[in-house]
């Protein structure tokens, strides 16, 4: 009788330990699974962000180098002219229309761009498509555009700060 009681006691002790060990292992496995699921898209999201940053830089460089048809002046240079010169080569309304057409062709699907140029207290800005100011992740590239202005018989070089921001439309 005493032997039976002893064996039963030992078996119950082992049983509880086994159940506890299995439960902890199960919880551990579930936790690893949940963490892997939670973080598995992180590398891909980061890679997508890097591509969008690259697209923002290339879009800025395109606006800096490509000419406004039929003029022999780049989009950003023409915009800088409009900001600081009284008689720019490319008329303001024509430039905005041409820039919107070009952005419509070049922009990634579902993305909008904000182009802003500043000099002293003046700003030239274009958002296309016009969906309001950027919200969420922004991918920007900045640079400076030089414009030559004639002042009192002398030519003066003016640097205009330009920024292009790419953002997802809401």
């Amino acid at each position: 009788m005493s032997c039976y009681i002893y064996n039963k006691f030992v078996q119950e002790q082992r049983g509880v330990a086994d159940v506890l060990a299995i439960a902890i292992m199960f919880l551990f496995v579930v936790l690893i699974g949940v963490l892997l699921h939670a973080y598995m898209l992180t590398p891909l999201r980061s890679a997508t962000d890097r591509q969008l940053q690259l697209k923002s830089e290339y879009l800025y460089k395109t606006m800096e180098t490509a000419w406004v048809d039929p003029y022999a002046k780049s989009y950003l240079t023409a915009a800088a002219d409009n900001l600081v010169l009284t008689t720019p080569t490319v008329p303001g309304e024509y430039l905005r229309s041409a820039m919107e057409n070009t952005l419509g062709y070049l922009l990634p699907h579902d993305y909008a761009a904000e182009i802003s140029l500043t000099h002293e207290n003046r700003t030239w800005k274009l958002i296309y498509p016009d969906v309001g100011p950027p919200a969420g992740n922004r991918f920007s590239h900045s640079g400076s555009i030089s414009v030559i202005r004639a002042e009192a018989g002398e030519e003066r070089t003016i640097l205009v700060q330009a920024t292009l921001t790419l953002f997802r439309m809401g």
């Binding site: 496995v29 579930v30 690893i32 699974g33 892997l36 699921h37 973080y39 598995m40 898209l41 590398p43 891909l44 980061s46 890679a47 997508t48 890097r50 591509q51």
Partner: peptide, 19 residues
């Protein structure tokens, strides 16, 4: 669950590398 999550993680990392 873990095997599935690990496979998807590997696939996601591979896509990031390709990108």
């Amino acid at each position: 669950l873990v095997v599935s999550a690990y496979r998807q993680y590997r696939s996601s990392s591979e896509m990031a590398l390709l990108s």
